Lab assay of single mutants.
Amino acid sequence: NKASVVANQLIPINTALTLIMMKAEVVTPMGIPAEEIPKLVGMQVNRAVPLGTTLMPDKVKNYE
């Protein structure tokens, strides 16, 4: 099972992601793969992401 990116804290809307905000966890359904964490640093979320929520591609601005 592959790990996904999960919010390590509440991430407010329009916040630029940092390493400390994210952790890798095996979750269902799968979100953004954990190996993409370095790519996500500096990207902004387009909505608030509660603690423990899986980061889905549609929650990150300009994620492809």
Rank of each mutant, 00 (worst) to 15 (best):
V45D: 05
I13T: 11
T15P: 02
P12A: 08
T18N: 03
T28D: 14
I37G: 00
N14H: 14
N14Q: 04
P38V: 09
P29L: 06
L19S: 08
P57C: 06
I37Q: 03
N8S: 14
Q9G: 03
N1H: 14
A48M: 14
T53E: 15
S4T: 03
V26Q: 09
D58A: 08
P38M: 09
V5M: 03
R47Q: 15
A24S: 12
I32G: 03
V5W: 06
A24R: 00
S4Q: 03
N62A: 08
E35N: 13
V45A: 01
G52C: 08
M21R: 00
A3E: 10
K2T: 11
K59H: 15
Q9R: 11
V60T: 01
T53F: 08
L55A: 03
P57E: 04
P38A: 09
M43C: 11
K39S: 12
L19I: 10
E25I: 09
V49F: 06
G52I: 05
G42D: 04
M21I: 03
S4G: 03
K2G: 13
T54R: 00
E36Q: 11
M30I: 11
V41H: 02
E64Y: 13
V27Y: 02
L40K: 03
G52D: 04
V41A: 02
A34K: 04
P38L: 10
G42N: 05
L10W: 12
V26M: 11
P12H: 07
I11L: 01
L17V: 00
T53K: 08
I13D: 07
G42I: 07
T15Q: 07
T18C: 07
I20S: 13
I37A: 03
M43H: 09
P12E: 09
L19D: 06
P50R: 07
L17T: 02
E35R: 12
M22Q: 00
M21S: 05
P57M: 05
N8V: 11
N8D: 08
M30F: 12
D58H: 11
L17F: 06
R47F: 11
I37E: 03
A24Q: 06
V27I: 06
N1T: 14
L51Q: 15
M30H: 12
N14W: 15
A48E: 15
A34V: 05
N46Q: 07
V41I: 12
V6E: 00
K61G: 05
P33Y: 07
E36A: 10
P29M: 06
G31N: 01
T54N: 02
N46M: 11
K59Q: 15
V27P: 01
A16S: 12
P50Q: 10
N46T: 14
E35M: 11
L10P: 11
A16Y: 15
V41L: 09
T15F: 05
I13K: 14
A7N: 02
A34T: 00
T15M: 08
E35F: 13
A48G: 06
K23M: 07
M43R: 08
E35Y: 13
K61R: 12
I37C: 08
M30E: 12
L51W: 11
I37H: 00
V5Q: 03
P50C: 09
P29D: 06
I37P: 03
V49T: 07
K2A: 12
I37S: 01
P33G: 07
E25D: 11
Q9V: 13
S4W: 03
V49G: 03
K61H: 11
I32A: 03
T54I: 07
E25C: 14
E25Y: 09
N8R: 14
K2C: 15
A16D: 10
Q9K: 10
V45N: 00
P29I: 09
E25W: 10
P29K: 03
L55W: 02
L40A: 01
M56E: 06
K23S: 08
P12T: 07
T54W: 00
V27A: 05
M43V: 04
P12W: 07
K59R: 15
P12M: 07
N8M: 09
A3G: 10
Q44E: 15
V5C: 07
I32R: 06
E64K: 12
G31Y: 04
K59W: 15
M43G: 02
T18H: 05
P50A: 11
T28V: 13
A34H: 04
N8G: 10
A7W: 03
E36I: 07
D58L: 02
K59A: 15
L17Y: 00
I37K: 00
G42P: 02
A3N: 06
T15H: 05
N46S: 11
A16C: 13
A48L: 12
E64R: 11
M43N: 04
V41K: 00
K59S: 15
